[in-house]
Design a binder for these strands. Sequence first.
DNA 1: TGATAATTGTTATGGACCATATCAAATATC
DNA 2: GATATTTGATATGGTCCATAACAATTATCA
Lengths: 169, 169
Amino acid sequence: MTVSKTIEKSAEATKSRKDAADSPAEALHLGELSEQLGYVLKRAQLKVFENFLRCVASLQLTPAQFSVLLLVEQNPGRNQTEIASTLGILRPNFVAMLDNLESRDLCARIRSTNDRRSHILVLTDKGKAVLTRAKKLVATKHEARLNEVLGVANREALIAMLSKIANEF
Amino acid sequence: MTVSKTIEKSAEATKSRKDAADSPAEALHLGELSEQLGYVLKRAQLKVFENFLRCVASLQLTPAQFSVLLLVEQNPGRNQTEIASTLGILRPNFVAMLDNLESRDLCARIRSTNDRRSHILVLTDKGKAVLTRAKKLVATKHEARLNEVLGVANREALIAMLSKIANEF
DNA sequence: TGATAATTGTTATGGACCATATCAAATATC
DNA sequence: GATATTTGATATGGTCCATAACAATTATCA
């Protein structure tokens, strides 16, 4: 609850903008906002996604698409509903996503022989190759940058805490 | 980089769903996904926002609206552009947001006398009262729940790391 | 067995959020 | 004083997210 030392200089409300010799407009005080988990979480998430996109730009993969490929690889024989729900994606919204990946020949839908309603998802050879390259880029660029900023130990602690929140909140 | 012990039982792809005596469909393996910062970050952010909304449901405030009220309170005499850009909100998108807050009499736009183009933002009395109540709800419910899950020390460490990512990534 | 219910993938649709171009009014610049 | 810039605003399109509804298939059970 300690507001740290954010009370540096109460903003003079009566001061006109651009008064002295072109003052640099002084940044706003975030105040309690910098202690709000939701705020900081959202800003960090945007930065991380942005960095992810840059790191795998050559493969044209979004974080969501990367997660689909990873999950399909890790779970052979599963259908759309299972993969989508595990990722928190609603079935209707998963259709266009798969259409995209399938049109790029990264994964394929296979009619199940057990249940002819469902589509088993598999990675194509190209999909496997792209995923392998994506993992390398993520490890050598994305994670590497994160380790620069936080250090390895902190990075692991961070992920552990976020997982706890994601699962137990 | 250690994949922990996620290699428990390689999924038998040839096994039909619902085979034995109604098996509970066994959950999918997240695999490397659980080590992906972006994935865990996004899931945690959704949970935190969800919890925030529940905690301040009686005040009908979203995280974004709460952040606007906080920032306006903390920075008297600032205009729309300054408040919006500090929050990472684009000016066009900030208009509807302010229309909403103003229609609920939580804040007001005041034509600046220095620069008649700009609107100075201020909290109304009702806005101040609502913000005070919101802060209380956030502290006693939202943050309290987080402390239950992580502990106070970890919570502060988490926010520090996320801030670092948000600022230095 | 056969009627009914549930599931799977899909389409259609609407809302929330985000980004760009553009505009009039006001101000800054030179 | 002519031109450029800034501010708030509108219009618009894109992406993501949520719900309802549908045909095909499968499960349930009287």
